[in-house]
């Protein structure tokens, strides 16, 4: 009786396992087909590349957030840090706040160029992330609290720094990082948006780091079992601090890309990004308890949110309803993940 019952049951465990692993991807494809049927314009190359363009900034942040969440941490400050870093970068490009609205060559003359602007934005992100990481590891304040505080501190710093107003009107060298499309002969002349290429490029790098390097293994170990990691000789303080530094790097880079795309840096930029970013990671299957997940999932999670918003927009669903939908999807995604896990254990 048991012998012939076995193969069928072994198959069943595979289905559940595979379903769990590919659920976000399957859901993404199903959603795309659904929107395609509702609105044929959805699958036009321009629209599809626009979706990737739209999620590229939160996607970049989500890559950093994947590292943080893998260690069982969280970073609520990403949106604020992004705003602050973007303003500092923009000010560097403009050579100060005096010519904040000047457009064109005037700015080139007074400022320090887009290269230093990008470095400045990233530096602000990295320093902010380092400070938060050190507060978590040396003051032993939980990540939730540290970054909740950081959320307020960096937003305040951004407002203080800019006096509340935006900095806008950058040179072409600057804005091309957000607006340009490369490989124009691809996709029927549509090409690939630069931010999308940056997002996907860093996703590949992060994937390699997490999957194939010693450091990546350490990140999973710390999130999986902190005490065991320590007793295995891992420098857990360094590792935990480092993920917030990485998060800060992506906040700075994201800030630069966003300001380039909007041709403006503002103190109110990135408000509510923490929700979208954490949602991308979680919908992608990374466990909030740490130790399990991947960047591939995060990319799919980010795209899923992008597709959902785009599809709703194309079908003229109000942006208020879109917010409600995103919130519900987060809860349902986690519930679905937990459901599959409980099935796998028994």
């Amino acid at each position: 009786m048991t012998a012939d019952a076995l193969p069928a049951q072994r198959k069943q465990i595979d289905t559940i396992g595979l379903l769990g692993r590919f659920a976000p991807l399957i859901f993404l494809l199903v959603l795309m087909v659904a929107f395609w049927l509702a609105e044929p314009n959805f699958v036009k190359p321009l629209n599809l590349t626009n979706i990737v363009l739209q999620v590229s900034v939160t996607g970049l942040l989500a890559i950093g957030m994947t590292f943080v969440i893998l260690t069982a941490g969280i970073d609520l400050s990403v949106g604020s840090l992004l705003a602050f870093a973007g303003l500092v970068g923009a000010a560097v490009a403009k050579g100060g706040l005096e010519s904040r609205f000047a457009v064109g060559d005037v700015t080139e003359a007074a400022g320090y160029g887009w290269g230093l602007a990008m470095l400045a934005a990233i530096a602000v992100g990295v320093i902010g992330g380092t400070l938060q990481g050190l507060a978590i590891t040396w003051l032993r304040v939980p990540p939730f609290v540290v970054t909740l505080g950081g959320m307020s501190v960096f937003r305040g710093a951004a407002l203080l720094f800019s006096g509340g107003g935006p900095i806008s009107g950058f040179s072409e060298g600057y804005t091309m990082w957000g607006k340009e499309r490369l490989f124009r002969d691809l996709l029927g002349g549509v090409g690939l948006p630069v931010p999308a290429l940056i997002f996907l490029g860093f996703a590949v790098i992060a994937f390699i780091v997490l999957r194939y390097t010693r450091y990546g293994r350490h990140v999973y170990a710390v999130g999986g079992n902190l005490e065991a990691a320590r007793l295995s000789g891992l420098n857990v303080r360094f590792i935990i601090t480092s993920v917030y530094v990485i998060m800060g790097f992506f906040a700075g880079l994201g800030a630069f890309v966003l300001s380039a795309r909007l041709d403006s840096a503002e103190a109110v930029a990135g408000q509510g990004y923490e929700l979208t970013v954490i949602a991308s990671v979680v919908i992608g299957g990374t466990s909030l308890f740490g130790g399990q997940g991947s960047v591939v999932g995060t990319v799919i999670g980010a795209l899923l949110i992008g597709v959902m918003l785009n599809g709703l927009q194309l079908n003229n669903v109000s942006s208020y309803i879109q917010q409600i939908v995103i919130g519900l999807v987060i809860v349902l995604a986690v519930a679905f993940d937990l459901f599959l896990k409980s099935r796998r254990k028994t």
Partner: peptide, 21 residues
């Protein structure tokens, strides 16, 4: 379970954790 194993990781990663260098 509490102090030594990384239950979510593969046997391979568990054995190599102290010798990754």
């Amino acid at each position: 379970k509490q102090q030594a194993l990384f239950l979510a990781l593969a046997i391979r990663a568990n054995i190599s954790m102290a010798t990754l260098d």
